[in-house]
Design a protein around this nucleic acid. Structure first.
Lengths: 345, 345
DNA sequence: TTGTAAGCGTTATCAT
DNA sequence: ATGATAACGCTTACAA
């Protein structure tokens, strides 16, 4: 590999002068500069960041630690958000996937330390609680899509599932819906409770009773290998004496089965039943016909803001605690006034 | 940061002895070994990989370069596959996302070189052709989910879209289907042609004519911002004088709209119309009711095998050319014999 | 404006 | 089995 010395030799200057040029330091004669640049180009010299790190002790790298990447399809956008910020900040990104295994996590932290990473983005693919363990302590860490009640000081960025659900429910009420069915997320997920609470609170605020028979299970079991009974729950909702005019699905995946249930019952969306989801999982939400009204889980923003937060931590700004990011309403064609238009199946 | 010297001092030995222990070299007295290990634990010493790299010139890191991560939801599994192999091989993974921008790509290659990466996994989120540019040359590279006709020597791993499509079509024929509709992928994708060719070839081999009216557009336009007209195409297929008994969707995203079209026409899947997709994009394929029969795009395997291939390249084994990975049939409930069972809507 | 010498944390070489 | 010394590619401190 060609080193700074080779360049120096070819350019007929000292190593230090080459170093100056490479780092854009002041006080280099234009002629010298050009000589050096020519030599660099000729030799195809690329500085060795490791050598630099040994001396300066600043790696300009951050690490991303992920758990179960594949279960939540678009959550990879978190990583993209982190990368985009890192790119802008001139940082390199190391990535490790632990599958949520504590032993793997330990290994990952060690690897990060071996590389003298500046800081870590610890991100989970589903919004959840995590425990801060002592391996984390030596490295500045920001939690993304997760938070720790036990250590509320650790900086964290999470989506505001509650507010998103409030918005969706308010929207349905303002369209005129009063009898609304709800097909629940896997209760193992934090989002399940936050979203359901948003729904319940809005209904209560409007003095609307929520019959418990209108709140049914959608998914349950171990996250990632959930059992999905949303289709059956939908059929159950539709067979009630007084049919709901709208159904809120815990997420878009559930909404998909709600569609299947509604359509195969010969009903129209949204004329007979309005449907809303959550996540804006685009392949589903934009793929369905009619397209799905939903609240967008801001994965990319979580990653980007998480990285920005980490940068703040690294530059010594005191940051701590949890920050919530909005889940904006995405209004499409699956929600309309109850009763719908004139067209009927 | 605590260095090898600190450990040596505490343990009362030389740096080199500590180094020996850390690297598990032979010829260390058990007593010495223990002393050193205690000192390491006490000081919480973590070796500095950069310093090691400066000396040894082997980084034990590989880079992953991705283009548009977010457009194809599960394609992140490629990255997971690469990581799993890397983990097993004791390698660190650097990742950069270029968004497909050539300027970003150039920067990424430079960053990789600055880190003295051992090799690169160059992966695209949709199966396509890529051009090998000269920045790639200095670094051993394996293409994953893409290949280069211009440089057929570059090792590449791609899915066998053609064979997957053949399998799906054969399966439908063996169920008794003769009149099969086809809703096409975006022709900008390589997979579109391979999959359609698989279908056509099987039909021809069985001496079955394919009316061009049965092959309709599903998606078109710039990849990632495609216009999806699969719903309308499905309605068009269903309104033909002689209705197809099965519909092949170019992928699961298209299959979703085929479902919407079929169900909202009051028809049953698979009793009235069998539907098959491609990709096994699980949120859709397992989320639909009935669940979707499809061919699995082996993203994880592509990544894993790609990394294994890179490892082979790095250890000097001569590898070159394209390798194809099977897309296994995943049989679920959306495909059945034409006419179906007794149940009818 | 440029160069020299020393040092970062590690490993390689060669002695002991 | 262990250690002294040099070296890797670079930057820092200082001198010229």
């Amino acid at each position: 590999m060609v080193s700074i010395k080779d360049v120096a030799r070819i350019a007929g200057v000292s190593d230090k002068t080459v170093s100056r040029v490479v780092n854009g330091e002041a006080n280099v004669h234009p002629d010298t500069q050009e000589k050096v640049e020519r030599a660099i180009a000729e030799l195809n010299y690329v500085p060795n960041l490791s050598a630099r790190l040994v001396r300066t002790n600043r790696s300009h790298s951050i690490g991303i630690m992920t758990d179960l990447v594949s279960t939540t399809p678009y959550s990879g956008d978190i990583v993209r958000g982190v990368q985009d910020w890192a790119k802008a900040a001139g940082r390199t990104v190391l990535i490790t996937n632990t599958g949520g295994d504590p032993e793997e996590e330990r290994r990952a932290w060690r690897t990060f330390q071996e590389h003298r990473i500046d800081g870590v983005i610890y991100t989970t693919m589903a919004h959840r609680e995590v425990a801060i363990h002592e391996e984390m302590l030596p490295l500045p860490t920001v939690l993304v899509n997760c938070s720790s009640e036990a250590d509320p000081k650790v900086p964290a960025i999470v989506p505001n599932d509650y507010a998103g659900s409030v918005t969706l429910t308010e929207m349905l009420l303002s369209l005129g819906h009063r009898r609304i069915g709800y097909v629940r997320l896997n209760p193992a997920l934090k989002a399940a409770h936050l979203r359901l609470a948003g729904f319940r609170d809005v209904m209560k605020r409007h003095n609307l009773a929520v019959a418990e028979g209108l709140i049914l299970d959608g998914m349950f079991g171990p996250v990632g290998q959930d059992t999905n009974v949303s289709y059956e729950s939908t059929l159950a909702l539709l067979s009630q004496a007084e049919r709901p005019t709208a159904i809120i699905a815990g997420n878009d995946e559930i909404a998909l089965q709600v569609y299947c249930g509604v359509l195969s019952s010969g009903l129209r969306v949204p004329n007979d039943v309005s449907i809303v989801g959550f996540d804006d999982f685009q392949t589903v939400s934009r793929g369905l016909r009619p397209q799905l009204t939903t609240a967008a889980l801001p994965y990319y923003t979580l990653g980007f803001e998480g990285a920005r937060l980490l940068e703040a931590v690294l530059t010594g700004k005191a940051v701590s605690g949890k920050r919530e990011i909005d889940c904006p309403l995405v209004f499409r064609q699956s929600a309309g006034a109850p009763g719908g238009g004139e067209r009927k199946a």
